[in-house]
Write a protein that binds this DNA or RNA. Sequence first.
DNA 1: GCGTCCAGGTCTACC
DNA 2: GGTAGACCTGGACGC
Length: 318
Amino acid sequence: MRLSNRTLFVIRPIPPYDFELTVRKPAGWSLLNPLEVYREGTLWTATHFDRELVGIRLTGKGTVEHPRIDVAIFSSKRHGAGWAAGAEKLLSSMLGADQDLSQFYSFAKRDGILKHVIDDLYGMHDTFSNTIFSEAVLAILLQMAPLKRSNEMMVSFINEYGDTVEFDGERIRAWPTPQKMANVDQEELARRCRVGYRAKSIIKLAKRLLAVDFPSAEELERMDSDRAREALLELPGIGDYSADIINPHGGFPIDVWSAEVFGKLFFGKEPRNNRDAVERVKREGIRRWGKWAWMAFFYTVQDLEGLSRKLGTRIRLT
DNA sequence: GCGTCCAGGTCTACC
DNA sequence: GGTAGACCTGGACGC
């Protein structure tokens, strides 16, 4: 699909805001999907706004202390000022442009681990996708697989079932939609994308999101954190760990790998059994970081190399 | 080359 | 209400 109509506007994030760190996070987390393109300060990506597939070009301008993002949204239809205002509000939120980091930084400066990561990643904001389906599928594909295999499943899923848009000289594939996946055969999905038993959860998830009036990402953000989490736990294939990943309020998503990492940071040694240590490590993280647990988790996993160096602790990176 | 184990969880049957 | 076992696949490891 070729997208030729452009809507232009500027976003001025709350400083400090490091555009590159925010849209291309050091641990390899992409803004919206792993197939988006980043080149010399500009990101090309694609998503759905109100079920309409749009292309997005973001260019970081200014400095960390005086940031500016030039935005171009490419669509097949022409849109008016009202649509543009809605898109600007949504994208600002997705880019974390309205996050004020000052309180988190004040807290982090007094913590033996966090004081290092906020120094290394100064100005990195948290971002989130506007579609629950993509976040939930990502969480499902992370389950019971090494990161390399999760990435392979993710790329295969997007290539096999995502729509391609052409805009601004780029070709970008977007995450598949629940509308499309609800009609796909489970065995076909498993075979084409090598996702194994996860295919069942993905198809059931797509059907559930279409069948009931499930809250949107924005609605989940307006709920209190516990209520949002409860809603997410009702989705097929979404348990404790995945709900913490998807929840716009953030959680403390400890799995086998992060139990090892945080176990080492908290207690100075690797747990004897990572799977058994998950609950203990999670409790300690929430006790230590309280309402900042998500931001602390987010910053820490992006800076494991820096922390290994500064703390003199060998941490497994992936 | 082959068999076994296990990995960045979740669900379900069984007690 | 608590928990053991199953679940796709592919890489690592031992033999």
